[in-house]
Computed example of a mutant assay.
Amino acid sequence: MAKATMLTYLDEQLTKQLPDYDVAIDWDVKNHSVELVIRLFAENPAQLHLDDAEGVASEEAIIEFEDGILLVDPKKSKYDVADYLAVYPYEGKKGLRQGELDALVTYLKEVMDEGLSDLMDFLNDDDAAEVFELHWDREQFAELVRSNEVKGLTTYLPYPAY
């Protein structure tokens, strides 16, 4: 059996921990980055007229919201932080520690659970916020990482070879 990489481990954990969500892994070999593309779907029963981030209007019965988390090699990857919910560095070929990946999946589930609830409120509650977006709390995520380090989850899972 081949040794786990940060990609294979991440895929396995996302499948186990987030079976009810649409999360895809997009590995950009040339940019040395890994994007977790996350999608939330919700019914728009009143078929409210909604504008997306680019100003495209929609009155669809099912709303699809998409965002992303980007894992980057800070020395090689090119990206715009504003395009992502969160950007998190890995250590080149060394990759990421298991505790960091576990924290990422655990916190992503929390963000998506809360986000889906907020999206439903946004679509069904006249008093809800005028803008819907997911929220990533860097400190809360960092606390999960620290907690996993205390548990001894410090083994590095390497960046995959092409």
Rank of each mutant, 00 (worst) to 15 (best):
D80E: 15
V105K: 00
Y88G: 02
H32N: 11
E43Q: 13
R39I: 10
Q98Y: 04
D113R: 04
L71W: 00
L14A: 04
L7D: 13
D80N: 14
G68Q: 03
I62K: 10
S77I: 09
L101M: 15
N44A: 12
D102C: 09
H32Y: 14
W27Y: 13
K16H: 15
L7R: 15
V23T: 05
L7N: 12
K16M: 12
W27Q: 12
R39S: 12
V29A: 13
G68T: 05
K30Q: 12
P19V: 06
R97M: 13
L96C: 11
A42V: 07
Q47W: 08
H32L: 05
G99P: 02
D102M: 07
K78Q: 11
A57L: 08
L71C: 02
T106L: 14
I38E: 00
A86R: 00
G95M: 05
A57I: 08
D11C: 09
V81F: 12
I25N: 09
L101P: 01
S33R: 06
P45S: 13
L7H: 13
E110P: 01
D26F: 06
L104H: 01
V81A: 11
D11W: 07
K16L: 14
L36P: 00
V105N: 00
L14Q: 03
D113S: 06
R97D: 08
P19F: 03
T5W: 10
E43P: 04
G99Y: 01
G115V: 04
T8S: 14
E60D: 15
L10W: 01
G68E: 01
D22Y: 12
K93E: 13
L14C: 04
E66T: 14
K109W: 01
E114S: 14
L36D: 00
L7Q: 14
A4D: 12
L10M: 13
G68V: 03
P74A: 05
A42S: 11
L104R: 02
Y84S: 04
E66N: 07
E60V: 14
D20G: 09
A103W: 02
P19Q: 06
A103V: 06
